[in-house]
Amino acid sequence: MSILVNKDTKVIVQGFTGKEGSFHAEQCIDYGTNIVGGVTPNKGGQTHLGQPVFNTVAEAVKATGATVSMIFVPPAFVGDAVMEAAEAGIELAVIITEGAPVKDMQAAKAHATKHGMMTIGPNCPGVITAEECKIGIMPGMIFKKGNIGLISKSGTLTYEGANQVCNEGYGITTAVGIGGDPIIGLSYNQILPMFEADPDTECIVMIGEIGGDLEIQAAKLIKEQITKPVVAFIAGQTAPKGKTMGHAGAIVSGSAGTAKEKMEALEAAGVKVVVSPAEIGKAVKELLS
């Protein structure tokens, strides 16, 4: 078992024939992801990477039965692409693109919610169910199959965390990079219950950062609903106030959104909080042995 995606998931790619889309779609296919086609306007009817290209998401869904879309369109077109996917009946859109305007994402997410479509991202590495299905840009080889679920706002910390977990002899069920933008799709509070319900996931690693209060909300949910052990790291303990640290959402505004308050809330919820990402692997081992 796993969450969100598995080897049977039918995936299309929006922005299929572009440079980024092509490169990563090919990597996903090599990993074993069931990519059944893609969408690039005015290239409908062509074949790309051995798969059919469609002009619209609606056509692609009708012809292939795809339920998940991986989105690589340029930032200015992300909002449009997400809304198109939602209306075409896609169930989950994984938005990799970085730099989408916040206003567009606000409208797109509201529209997706109205149509019952889940979104992941934007500005994220994507989602991977180890050794089955990779929808995103993460290096597949570090995700060995196992029993740890991983949720992270940061791409490279996802890799760091997964790598340490695997080096300790464990592995990953599913890893979800939720992105570090001010408005994101699925977050801790939607994904934690999925891991709780997944029989194969024994322990959850959650990686957060400064800015916003999603980690505080997660702490509340963990206290009330999550029985599986959770390890957490919050990046940005040493970040100065009022400065955006790379991710658009990673900013401490005034006294809100600090790493300290998030770490304290998670600790109070019974989470094993580590002060350095270098300790994630060891902490998982400690909780499981």
Binding site: S152, K153, S154, T156, A235, M245, A250, S276, P277
Partner: peptide, 15 residues
């Protein structure tokens, strides 16, 4: 590389 790991690296050095 990566904003999260960059912050995490600063935190580790500090720790």
């Amino acid at each position: 590389n990566g904003a999260g790991l960059a912050m995490g690296t600063m935190d580790t050095i500090n720790h």
